[in-house]
């Protein structure tokens, strides 16, 4: 189990619990504003973009090349950007804080 906190563009802080699957799917289930997950998690649409809190980057790990290529062409991306469909929920992610890009 992992507790994951989302901060939306209107500065709402929402903490939800997940057991498995992707962080994107967890956000969509919980109606987190700004995470649409249009393509269902295949790394095609970039509608699940989050900025990982700097202190949590060690927990989320590094983006794959395909994910990085996608983020490179996103004007709002920075060194903390991830596509949340590529973050798999496990205990490792417990406590992470993610700022929703959109």
């Amino acid at each position: 189990m992992a507790k994951i906190t989302f901060i939306t563009s209107d500065e709402q802080r929402i903490t939800v619990e997940g057991f498995s699957g992707s962080v994107m799917a967890l956000a969509v289930e919980n109606g987190i504003k700004g995470i649409d997950g249009d393509c269902g998690g295949v790394c095609s649409c970039a509608t699940c973009h989050v900025h990982v809190a700097p202190e949590d980057v060690t927990k989320t790990g590094e983006a794959s090349e395909i994910e990085t290529d996608m983020l490179e062409l996103d004007d709002h991306a920075d060194q903390y950007s991830r596509l949340s469909c590529q973050l798999q929920i496990s205990e490792v992610l417990d406590g992470v804080v993610l700022r929703v890009a959109k």
Binding site: C43, S44, D69
Partner: peptide
Amino acid sequence: NRKINPHVGFGFSHHNCLGATHAR
């Protein structure tokens, strides 16, 4: 069940397909 699929079938970037949600 292709898992990583960065296709551009709905276009890409600013002008990606407005009707994609409906089409999907």
